[in-house]
């Protein structure tokens, strides 16, 4: 039995009929066509699927699409505004915070959340804040620097 859900994704409202068991990440990728949100494990550990749901970073592989009903979702595609990169995106570019890029959308969303909670985090706080995100390429150091870059930029 399909169910109707209404959500706002990156500022645009939409309505879809979905199977109750459809994961939010598959809804975003396969139904809505926003493939920037990735799947690295489907078990809530790697964070590649991180999106913002009602302002909080969540792992979209562990939420059903129906649970997001009436929710407001921001994905990586919705982060830049009017063609201007979000400071965290900019930081990743400036500081070489990515290699293969597969973890990157989730990392960036996690970075956004870290800075929402604490605009001036220490290196250690950033590393702790990335607890839910895995990167196999970078060794994280440049990711930390990318978030530091964004923090500085957002403060000034």
């Amino acid at each position: 039995m399909k169910q109707v859900i209404q959500v706002t994704i990156n500022g645009k409202p939409r309505q879809d009929e979905v199977e109750p068991r459809l994961l939010l990440v598959h809804y975003l990728r396969d139904v809505v066509g926003l493939t920037g949100t990735h799947i690295g494990c489907e078990t809530s550990i790697c964070g590649a699927c991180t999106v913002l749901l009602n302002g909080a970073a969540v792992k979209s592989c562990t939420i059903l699409a129906v649970q997001a009903n009436k929710g407001e979702i921001v994905t990586i595609e919705g982060l830049a505004t009017n063609g201007k990169l979000h400071p965290v995106q900019e930081g990743f570019w400036e500081r070489h915070g990515l290699q293969c890029g597969f973890c990157t959308p989730g990392m960036i969303m996690a970075g956004v959340q870290i800075l929402q909670r604490n605009p001036n985090p220490t290196e250690e706080q950033i590393r702790e804040g990335l607890e839910g995100n895995l990167c196999r390429c970078t060794g994280y150091q440049h990711i930390v620097e990318a978030i530091q870059y964004a923090a500085q930029k957002m403060r000034t």
Binding site: T35, G36, I76, W93, L98, G101, T104, P105, I108
Partner: peptide, 21 residues
């Protein structure tokens, strides 16, 4: 030198195999 490949990767517009529909 900042990477040329990054803009598509940081905006979620790159296509990995599963992104091809």
């Amino acid at each position: 030198i900042k990477r040329k490949e990054d803009p598509r990767l940081i905006t979620g517009t790159a296509s990995y195999v599963d992104d091809i529909k």
